[in-house]
Design a binder for these strands. Sequence first.
DNA 1: TTTTTATATTGACATTTATCTATATGATGA
DNA 2: TCATCATATAGATAAATGTCAATATAAAAA
Lengths: 107, 107
Amino acid sequence: MKDYIKNSKMFKALSDATRLQIVEMLAGGELCACKILAHFNITQPTLSYHMKILIGSGLVYGRREGAWMQYSLNKEALAEASALLRKISLSKKVPDTGTCGCREARA
Amino acid sequence: MKDYIKNSKMFKALSDATRLQIVEMLAGGELCACKILAHFNITQPTLSYHMKILIGSGLVYGRREGAWMQYSLNKEALAEASALLRKISLSKKVPDTGTCGCREARA
DNA sequence: TTTTTATATTGACATTTATCTATATGATGA
DNA sequence: TCATCATATAGATAAATGTCAATATAAAAA
């Protein structure tokens, strides 16, 4: 899978305000689904849906502990996403060809 | 506006593979719309739509230069997004209360 | 085993998204 | 001014998204 597809999937997981808050909550350590649910005005199936997306993106791990689900961050994945954005933010300008070239390219 | 709403808007802008590629292209410096368009199999109105979203997210600047639109990165915004993810990826575990507490909370 | 608790899945639905075609606007050049 | 080029907007549409209620599944407790 092309990087920009994998990465866009990660950013998609972070593109929902609820999911972003969940990721921030998990920064403090592993949490049970019920604790996460208590912080939002959403139903249990909706949380389950969001967690599935977060896990599918690779940003979050889930493990069953008896009757409960425990969720935690994949910090490596977050660090990679951070590094990608940082690399772009630090990128150097490549000398360009002067003008735009739209007109010329068509002539 | 709450941070996680503003930030989720930024990540939403990056959550589309085409837009993510555009941001990566802009890492090399300012580009004219026509040059960006040439790299994708999308129509001009579709590109216009994506650029509007990127600008709305704060990640990209647009300026008109005569008949052309020149787009460039807001590197500060990218650095901020990167820093947010990095902060989360480096976060330390907060001592928890032991067990999950679902059962107890309900009793 | 039966009941209760925690989570997942299904199906429905309204909203948002990405895309196109057609057209409008804005700027250049003849 | 008129024709052309670059971009933006409008309207349509198919697909994806986020949400819920209802139900299924899995584990624990009685």
